[in-house]
Amino acid sequence: MEVREATADDGPTVRSLALRSMEASYSLSPSTIEGAIRQWYGVEEFAEKLEDDEVQLLIAEEDGEPVAFSESVLVDSRGDIHWLHVAAMYRGQGIGHALYEETRQRLEDAGAETIRGLVLADNTEGNRFWEKRGLTKVGEGSVEIDGTAFVENIYVDHEGSEIQPIVVEDRELYVDRSDSDRGSKGAFYTVYSEEDRENKYGYYCGSCESLVTSMDSMGRLECDSCGNQLKPTRWDAAYM
């Protein structure tokens, strides 16, 4: 198997691989899957990913034929693997594992100290994949797909907590440095009202160190102090 970086000519290949993989792994309607793929990997969206220095798109080939791809991103010192798609007919041959190892190595070479994997809770095969790679489930998130909420499991390659207490207006809150998303100027970190991370309070802007507790009128996360905006990825319903 050979692994290479995606090029502008790989757009149709990536869309085809994602379609075949998702049809085999997710119990979603064909229209939802097709709409999501257009949004993530449409012509303009695919070009933007290729131009983004923090996004990594890798293509795995067998005898010159693309059979899998991964999409990952470096967020501070953490590597997030958003997608690792293997065409259904090539599963069970170790391609997913080999592509994961290559993706991880390249993330670490770029500065990642930890790895995080994300997968919908009802994707049994996907959850087993992360567990077999030695990652540990540390939490859950809620994502919205075509108006319906789904549970997304979060896996990391260590069990340590990076909770950091902060004081805002005489109230102690807790920033989770291990739970962050990319912004246009810096990362957004999840903030909780208690150390046990039971109740989410808002977000902490890594650009200007301000607390963000509300969305804008379009439902998008933006820091009022510095204009840092959350970059849409994965299942963001506002962009579907």
Rank of each mutant, 00 (worst) to 15 (best):
33 I>V: 01
201 Y>H: 14
196 D>P: 06
1 M>N: 08
179 D>M: 13
177 R>G: 00
26 Y>C: 03
201 Y>D: 03
232 P>Y: 00
78 R>Q: 11
177 R>N: 07
221 L>M: 07
136 T>Y: 13
16 S>T: 01
160 G>D: 11
85 H>A: 04
140 E>H: 12
135 L>G: 03
204 Y>P: 02
176 D>E: 11
230 L>F: 04
209 E>H: 09
128 R>Q: 14
227 G>I: 11
219 G>D: 04
180 S>W: 04
204 Y>K: 04
2 E>V: 08
232 P>D: 01
108 E>S: 10
155 Y>G: 10
190 T>K: 03
43 V>K: 12
147 G>N: 11
1 M>A: 13
66 P>E: 00
171 R>H: 06
210 S>I: 13
69 F>P: 03
26 Y>D: 06
166 I>L: 13
162 E>H: 15
97 H>N: 14
124 T>H: 15
113 E>Q: 07
191 V>E: 01
145 I>M: 15
135 L>S: 03
232 P>S: 02
53 D>N: 15
153 N>W: 14
171 R>L: 04
105 Q>R: 15
66 P>T: 00
209 E>L: 09
183 G>A: 06
103 T>P: 01
12 P>A: 02
55 V>E: 14
111 G>M: 08
52 D>H: 09
146 D>H: 13
12 P>D: 01
86 V>M: 04
13 T>H: 02
24 A>F: 02
96 G>R: 07
146 D>N: 15
193 S>L: 06
72 S>P: 05
77 S>V: 11
198 E>D: 05
161 S>E: 10
190 T>Y: 07
229 Q>F: 00
167 V>E: 14
16 S>E: 03
75 V>C: 10
144 E>D: 10
162 E>S: 07
120 L>S: 05
238 A>F: 03
81 I>V: 15
80 D>F: 15
154 I>V: 15
131 E>G: 02
21 S>F: 02
90 Y>M: 06
166 I>N: 05
51 E>M: 12
